[in-house]
């Protein structure tokens, strides 16, 4: 923040304060109106998805926007959800509905990735922030440069690596998790936080007899909660919504992530009726939206406090 290009002197002379406050008052209403409109646009697709998911087939065919009272005589078809789950079918191995199995897959893969990323990132970030060792600078650049390698460049060879004759991870949880358990973004963000912790704390801990590992776990990690939470939440979203890779390395419906299951349902030869498609979409979206509502202040905080130092 060295110098700004603002020269205060160059700014125009004063305007009358009274006029300002009056325009401000009516301006405020306009502002609210505008913001509400924008929020509605942003939320509308969700509302449409939800509404469509409980429509009757006849209302979908006739393109009725609101087929329920007071404008229509239909009732919400909550049965669409069960019908959609039924149409997706059962898992041959466990007998569970495939949708449930895919939901469990997604939850499992997401949790493993989030934990994995955080553990590897905290460890690496600690080394970069707190320890001295030969090759530190070079290794740090190595880590950062992975941010510059586009996913699409590594996608095909990485997929081939999953095939038989190589790692033979095709159609396994390993393929869905292991390649994503390290994150340059995570390392970088957490390192930034670790670097801000005063060195004195470490010396004090040393006197108390704590080693590096204990210091890392008991002092650094709690102090860097916002960064760690941000990393966790963002990886949660990314992992939960993963589609491209998952579609490429799984072909068993009982190994699908839900996004792949959804796309599969949409393109199925059974012919997914719009209302059923939207019921599945709603079920795919709902868990993450609920999570977001409960954690939204951490998202904002995470983005705000970790700022843009990356």
């Amino acid at each position: 923040m060295a110098n700004t290009s603002v020269t205060v002197a160059a700014i125009r002379p004063a305007a009358r304060t009274q006029r300002v406050s009056r325009t401000r008052h009516s301006g405020r209403w306009a502002l609210y109106a505008l913001l509400i409109l924008i929020a509605l646009v942003s939320l509308f697709p969700f509302a449409w998805m939800l509404m469509t998911s409980v429509k009757d087939l006849g209302d979908v065919i006739q393109l009725r926007f609101w087929p329920w009272p007071p404008f229509g005589h239909s009732t919400p078809q909550w049965g669409n959800y069960a019908q959609a789950i039924n149409q997706i079918g059962l898992d041959d191995n466990t007998g569970l509905p495939l949708f449930v199995r895919q939901l469990l897959n997604t939850a499992f893969v997401t949790v493993v990735i989030v934990l994995g990323v955080n553990i590897t990132s905290i460890m690496a970030a600690y080394a970069f922030a707190q320890l001295d060792f030969p090759g530190k600078g070079a290794l740090f650049i190595v880590v950062l440069s992975t941010l510059m390698i586009p996913d699409d460049l590594t996608l095909v060879p990485r997929a081939v690596m999953m095939f038989k004759n190589y790692l033979d991870w095709y159609n396994t949880y390993l393929a869905l998790t292991v390649p994503f358990m390290a994150s340059a973004f995570g390392i970088f963000l957490i390192r930034q936080f670790f670097m801000q912790v005063p060195r004195d704390l470490f010396d004090a801990a040393r006197i108390d007899g704590a080693g590096h590992i204990r210091y890392m776990i008991q002092v650094m990690v709690p102090l860097s909660r916002p960064a760690i939470l941000t990393v966790a939440l963002f990886h949660f979203i990314w992992a939960w919504n993963e589609f491209k890779w998952a579609q490429l390395v799984t072909s068993n419906s009982n190994m699908y992530m839900i996004s792949v299951g959804l796309q599969d349902f949409l393109n199925g030869d059974g012919g997914a009726q719009t209302q059923l498609a939207m019921a599945v979409a709603t079920m795919v979206v709902a868990p993450i939206v609920v999570l977001y509502f409960f954690t939204q202040q951490y998202f904002t905080e995470g983005i705000t406090t970790t700022g843009l130092k990356g």
């Binding site: 997706i88 079918g89 059962l90 041959d92 072909s251 419906s253 599969d264 349902f265 030869d269």
Partner: peptide, 9 residues
């Protein structure tokens, strides 16, 4: 065994 939702799958 169910191998997807379409011939293509």
């Amino acid at each position: 065994e169910k191998a997807g939702s379409s011939y293509n799958d």
